[in-house]
Amino acid sequence: MRELTVKQLFEDKRKDFALSLVTEPQTINKKIVTPYFNRPGLALAGWLEVFTPERIQIFGEAEVRYLQSLKEQTMLERLREFFKMDIPCVIISKGLSLPPSVEYLANDFNIAIFSSRLSTVQLISQINRYLMDVFALEKTIHATLVDVFGLGILITGKSGIGKSECALDLISRGHSLVGDDMINMRNLNDKIIGRSGREFGHFMEIRGVGVVNVEKMFGIERVRHEKTIDMQIELMPWQENTEYERIGLKGNYVEHLGVKLPIIYLPISPGKNVSVIVEVAAMNQILKGVGYDAAEDFNRKIHEEIRKQTLFKKVQATEDDPKNGNSK
C-alpha cells in the first residue's frame, strides 16, 4: 500500500479532477490513509457519531446549499466541530463556493479546501477510481506474464525451468508479452492486474543468447503494458511418482492478494511442446468461461453409457427369468 498526501493527490489529479486550491498552500500536507470518501451531510447537521473523519470529505450541492441556509454564526460553529475531527481535506464539487469566513476557518485548522468543476457524480467516480488504484493491495513475484488469446496467463516455476523460453515461443506464435521475470500484481476491484515489475521496456533473458528486446524484435503489437491475470500455469520438472491432473474435474486454485485464480501444474519433460499446452489450457479456460466444461461433459457421457448398460442388463435379466411370465 502506498502512502498518499493531499499534496500528491493535488499534483497528480489537478487536471483530471479540475481542482483549484481555495485555502492557503501550506494546508495540503495532510496524509490520506484510506481509499474511501465521505459525504458529510449529517455531520454538518451536527450529528457526529458515526462520522468517518479520516476520509476525504466531498461537499456536493446538498452540503453547500444546506450550509448556505444556516445563519453564518451557526454555520461556522458546525464547521468548527467538523474541522476539529482532523479530516484530510474537503473537495467541493460543481465549482460551488462557500463564504470567505469558511476559508479563514479552514486555514486556522490547517485543512485544505479544493473546488472542483466536475459534477458530484463525476468527481466521486473519478476519486474512487484514483484512490482504489493508489491503495490497491500489491505484490511483486518472480514470474512471466503473457496474453494468450486475450487471457492473461501467469507462468511460474523455478528459475531455469523455461518460463522465458515458453513465453518467447508463445510470442513467436502470435501472442503477446506483458512482462518477464518480475511481475507486479495489484488487486483492483477483486481482479488481479499484472504488469512488468520494471518500467524500462520489454526485455527478456534467454539462456544461451542473453538479453533480447521483445518490442524491437517482434514489434509493438506483441507487447502489452498491463493485463488482468486470468489463470496461472506452474511449470514443474516431471517426476516419476508425482500425481498430475488427469481429467480436470476438480479444479485447482491459487490465491493472490485475496483473489482465487485457477492454476494448472504442468509437468514438463524434454520434447514436450509447452507453449502449445499453454494455448490449449487457455482455450479450455475460455470454454469454461462461457459455460462448457469438457471434463464434465465427458464424465456425463460416460455416466449415460454406464446407465444404458445397466438398463440393458436389467431387461435381459427379466427376459431370462422364467417366473416373469406370471407377474405383470
Binding site: 500425481e243 488427469r246 481429467i247 474435474l249 471434463a295 465427458f298 464424465n299 460416460i302 455416466h303 454406464i306 448398460q309 445397466t310
Partner: peptide
C-alpha cells in the same frame, strides 16, 4: 453403484 465413471477410473489409473 455408478460403475467406472471419471473418479473411480482416475483412481484406478493413479
Amino acid at each position: 453403484e455408478h460403475g467406472l465413471h471419471a473418479r473411480p477410473a482416475a483412481l484406478i489409473v493413479r
